[in-house]
Design a protein around this nucleic acid. Sequence first.
DNA 1: GGGGACTGAAACGGAAGCGAAACAATTTGC
DNA 2: GCAAATTGTTTCGCTTCCGTTTCAGTCCCC
Lengths: 112, 112
Amino acid sequence: MRPSQALRLWQQVLLSQVRDGEPDLTMRQTAILLTIYLDPPPHTVRGLAARLNVTKPVITRALDTMGALKLVSRHRDELDKRNVLIRRTVEGALFVERFGDGIVARAHELPI
Amino acid sequence: MRPSQALRLWQQVLLSQVRDGEPDLTMRQTAILLTIYLDPPPHTVRGLAARLNVTKPVITRALDTMGALKLVSRHRDELDKRNVLIRRTVEGALFVERFGDGIVARAHELPI
DNA sequence: GGGGACTGAAACGGAAGCGAAACAATTTGC
DNA sequence: GCAAATTGTTTCGCTTCCGTTTCAGTCCCC
């Protein structure tokens, strides 16, 4: 893949997301969402903050927003009640799946 | 490309952007930026709003933000003084170039 | 040359984000 | 048992964004 093709693909994917009125997540939020859905659980606030090199309130706020969108859910860890475990949701899985399919579709539409 | 690979690529690119402390643009802002740098000029507020299916103030505000970051610049159209022409900047071109190179690099790091 | 159309920006109230610091709740270690 | 450490959340003051509406400047055309 050449940089020009990569950029064009990125543009087309973003354009389709924006035009379809999908939630306007920030890069950080999208990075958190994909990490939750692609990396093996369990996921904690601390772990995500370390993985993204951001502060914990950034994660908390992103979870607030994405929780309201029902893209993720929070549950207190019963073994260590200080921890919060972040879990996937049906809606979030569908969103991520649609996103992945969208990338592949845009890739196929690209000029050679 | 399979959806799972596409998602993993997307995640890795976003993670590297976030970790490196690059500006945390929204999807909309990134879509606008890439459209300015990939689609042929001239670019106007109205044209971008139509291309992204958003309202004009959204474009105006995004240009405010990205102008402050020196990623784009605005110039009054001398032929039709109602128009504002959005132009690329050296800093913006470097940012987009770095972004494209980053995508390619992450793509090469992906497992098969 | 004057009324209507068009373009981009500004105003408004509300929502959400930021970093830094302070805060409960819980666990750990002595 | 109790101070210290750890986890996630909340608060603070500030900035940015949203959609809607309104506004100022410019062009067009009769």
